Simulated scan of single mutants.
Amino acid sequence: MSAAPRVVVLAGGVGGSKFVLGVREALRRRGVADTAAALTVVVNTGDDVWLSGVRLQPDVDSITYALAGVNDAERGWGRAGDSERVNHELQEWGAGWPWFTLGDLDLGTHLARTGWLREGLTPAQVIERMSHRWPLGARLLPMTDAEVDTVVVLEDGARLHFQEWWTRHRATLAPARFENPGIETADPAPGVADAIAAADVVLLAPSNPVVSIGPILAVPGLRDLVRTTTAQVVGVSPIIGGKVVRGMADVCLTAIGVETSASAVAAHYGARASGGVLDAWLLAEEDAALADEVAGRGIRSLVAPLWMTDAARSAAIAEAALGAAGL
């Protein structure tokens, strides 16, 4: 049997969680017994936030819970079967955000994380400790150990934390731009550079290109790591038939002047041969007519079914992405 491919995925959000599950399953179907040694996930931490004295890492937790099989698949976030007694009590005290629900089990995660951070552990060390609870079948790394949040600057100049803009206002307030205060002095988290350098393939999950993948690539030095790796870099379109699959990524794309189309997002990432990060791009069947347009940008285009409606289809998408890298 040939050696297991070394896979690095850049991911965030619900789309990232589903895709990572698919990659793990695709590796298992290839006979890879130790998927944790083969699969590294570099997770967006740009939407992290301090709330009621605890540090929340929504994307880290979504991917962790999904890999552990304890996520609330219907809501797309949090733990399955969670209760909200503590959240209601916080609201009675006028603490936290009444529009931002924290489940009791979820709060246990946040409290454990915050305690470890207060003891001096780094975010990367905290995630490693968290991963010991469940057999995740993947190694999770934060994009950086630095504290970098996402701020949404509205057209009137008002500034909101991303979570307030996204969760409370459902992205209905027109953004002028997105900022990540502190990212200029951040570094890739320990292990990220080595994982990308040793990878056989780097996959960009079908996550929000602006607020999930964008902050990862904005960490100083990380984009260059992707551009200079010897591995093939393959992206999976988060746009199907000219529409976002989930969430409000179209609002984010419009704010940075990118059309909501599979071809435009591929152009946003850019061809590695022209200073971008992509070698190949997976398009949905609904966007097959855009394949030549993508190829004309110097990016190999491949067409596949991209609806991640169940584990089998997510695994098939991941297999197509691995195949696009010649693996």
Results as ranks from 00 to 15, higher is better:
R75A: 07
G120D: 03
A73C: 00
A73H: 04
G103Y: 09
L121V: 00
I127Y: 09
S83G: 12
N87G: 14
R85C: 11
L107N: 15
G115T: 05
T122V: 03
E84W: 14
H88M: 07
W77R: 08
G94D: 14
E74Q: 10
I127R: 08
Q125N: 04
E92F: 10
H110G: 05
A80D: 13
V126T: 03
A124N: 06
N71A: 13
A95Q: 14
Q125F: 07
G103R: 04
G94F: 10
G69Q: 04
N71R: 04
R79H: 14
W116R: 11
A73Q: 00
D82F: 07
R85W: 13
N87L: 07
L117Y: 10
A73F: 03
G81C: 02
I127S: 01
R75V: 03
T114E: 03
S83H: 10
A80S: 15
I127A: 09
E128M: 08
D106P: 04
L105Y: 05
R85A: 14
L107P: 11
E84I: 12
W93G: 04
I127N: 02
N87T: 02
A112I: 01
W77F: 14
P98K: 06
D82E: 11
P98S: 12
Q91F: 08
G76M: 08
E128D: 15
V86Q: 14
W97V: 01
T122C: 03
V86C: 13
G94Q: 13
N71I: 12
D82P: 08
E89P: 00
A95S: 11
T101G: 00
A112K: 02
W116A: 13
G115Q: 01
F100E: 00
G76F: 04
G103P: 08
L90T: 06
H110S: 03
A73G: 02
V70Q: 06
T114V: 03
A112M: 07
